[in-house]
Write a protein that binds this DNA or RNA. Structure first.
Lengths: 142, 142
DNA sequence: GCCAAGCACTAAGATATCTAAGCAAATTCG
DNA sequence: CGAATTTGCTTAGATATCTTAGTGCTTGGC
């Protein structure tokens, strides 16, 4: 009996997801680290780095790294906010907006492959269970 | 409506698990990266690096890095196998064996916190669902 | 026995992530 | 108003992880 802990299962599943994503994104010169920020920006442009960090679930230094790569690939522009000069708002370039149509199907594909054989109900259960674990860890992890 | 993908949920949960583990392990000078290898070695000593990689779910270069840290902390010894000089077998030091009693409760604690409020049945569902996703991704991720 | 193929590990270099510490702009408050 | 605090971002340095490309040992076919 393996009797693996929840943490191990989650970590291992994460590594497999990241690998599947990386293999499919690499021909577009996008890495998984950049991917989550792109998704957040496709949903809403002009977010600050702090707000992006919150939505993607990383610390701010991680966000700085990822945005540096996205800027190097000409996917984003960083615009200092004139109302509050501490803040930098992140906007997509035309190139990045145009790539949404190519890239989103990749994410859907990976998720379809990953959840193949799961019913709608099972998928909702998974979301609920992971959501419960996340809120447990958020409140006591510090 | 957030409508987060399975991949995002798993990644975010993983980051929270890793953070909770890191906070609790740091006073013992053990990092999460080393943790999974320690667990595998507490279960069975003398594994080769390849076998360790397979059990922990990382590539071999990652295993090399993690074992380097464990060796620096005097937690393992690397012994060249005399029967097959390509292979290196990994053994725990007395120090590492002695720490099992202190460290295992930390893992149990993190898992208890993470799964608080989940019934036994729900925990089994989670394991089954993640297991299904893992096998889906293993077979098609490459 | 020789050599080609395969196997176990390592090196190099990139990305992903964290914590701790710092800087500069904005806000609060005496 | 001016100092202290807070806020948003950055830097520095460590760990974690991957892919690609070696190095050296073993084995199997001839």
């Amino acid at each position: 009996m393996p009797c693996r802990s929840a943490g191990y299962l989650v970590r291992d599943t994460h590594l497999l997801f990241a690998k599947a994503l990386r293999n499919r994104l690499q021909e577009h010169q996008i890495t998984p680290g950049q991917w989550y920020f792109l998704r957040a920006l496709w949903e809403e442009e002009g977010l600050s780095q702090r707000e992006l960090s919150r939505r993607v679930g990383t610390t701010e230094p991680t966000t700085v790294s990822a945005l540096r790569l996205l800027a190097r690939n000409a996917m984003i522009e960083r615009v200092r906010n004139p109302k509050d000069r501490r803040t930098i708002n992140i906007f997509l370039t035309d190139k990045a907006r145009a790539m949404k149509g190519d890239l989103m199907p990749i994410a859907l594909d990976v998720n379809d492959i990953a959840t193949a054989g799961l019913s709608e109900l099972e998928f909702e259960q998974l979301r609920a269970l992971l959501g419960k674990i996340r809120s447990n860890l958020v409140n006591t992890g510090l």
